[in-house]
Simulated assay, not measured.
Amino acid sequence: MKTKFLSNILLTLIWIFLTGEYNFNNFLFGFVLSFIILWILSGVEDKGSKKYFKIVPRIVSFFFFFIWELTKANIQVAYEVITPNFNMEPGIVALPLDAKTDLEITLLANLITLTPGTLALDVSTDRSVLYVHGMYVMNKKEFIADIKQGFEKRLLEILR
């Protein structure tokens, strides 16, 4: 997988040098173009090299998903701040974890904390539960399902 990534970067740099345009859009286009070329050329290689071609689209998808969730949460919190009504139903929820390693749990907790209106508080000693404070916990089961089907599922698809 590392060699595929390095090959992708090398082909991208070759593209940039050949075109003579040193900007982000050209880098992005070159990266996508070299990704497609490598994907086409890797038709008969081992299974391990195929992992790169699954992870990169998942990372891009996760990036856009996170931006979407971040935007929604910012609008929701901003609305709460500028309106005189108190619409919050704060609560602390015990989120059962499918994430097992320290990296998985740490990244999940940080993603939750980066989203306005939510805060990862603590992890149980057996690392099976993450305690999360939310500003809008109308229904605890829905709140848990949103995190598990959103952040945790997508994060684990990338890391595993």
Rank of each mutant, 00 (worst) to 15 (best):
M1T: 08
K4H: 10
K4N: 14
L6A: 10
N8A: 04
N8C: 15
I9C: 09
L11K: 01
T12E: 03
T12M: 14
I16G: 01
F17K: 01
L18D: 04
T19N: 13
N25C: 10
N26R: 06
L28N: 07
F29H: 07
F29K: 12
F31C: 06
F31P: 00
L33K: 02
S34D: 08
I37F: 12
L38P: 02
L38H: 09
L38V: 07
G43L: 09
V44G: 11
E45T: 15
G48H: 13
S49A: 10
F53D: 00
K54L: 15
I55K: 10
P57V: 10
R58V: 10
V60E: 06
S61T: 12
F63C: 14
F63K: 04
F63V: 15
F64M: 05
F64C: 05
F65M: 08
W68T: 08
E69V: 06
L70E: 11
L70A: 07
T71C: 13
N74L: 09
Q76F: 09
Q76W: 05
V77C: 07
Y79K: 13
E80K: 08
F86Y: 12
N87Y: 04
N87Q: 13
M88W: 00
E89N: 15
V93Q: 02
L95V: 07
L95N: 01
P96N: 07
P96D: 07
L97E: 03
D98T: 14
D98M: 13
D98F: 09
A99E: 04
A99H: 00
K100C: 04
K100H: 12
D102F: 12
E104R: 03
A109Q: 06
L111M: 15
I112K: 00
I112H: 02
T113H: 05
L114W: 01
L114T: 07
L114C: 11
T115D: 06
T115I: 05
L119N: 04
L119T: 09
L119V: 13
L119Y: 03
L121V: 14
L121S: 11
D122I: 04
R127A: 11
S128I: 01
V132G: 01
H133S: 08
H133T: 13
G134W: 08
V137G: 00
M138V: 12
M138F: 10
K140R: 13
D146Y: 02
Q149P: 03
Q149N: 15
G150P: 04
G150L: 03
F151P: 01
E152F: 05
R154I: 10
R154K: 15
L155F: 00
L156W: 01
L156S: 11
E157K: 11
I158M: 05
I158A: 02
I158Q: 05
L159G: 07
R160N: 15
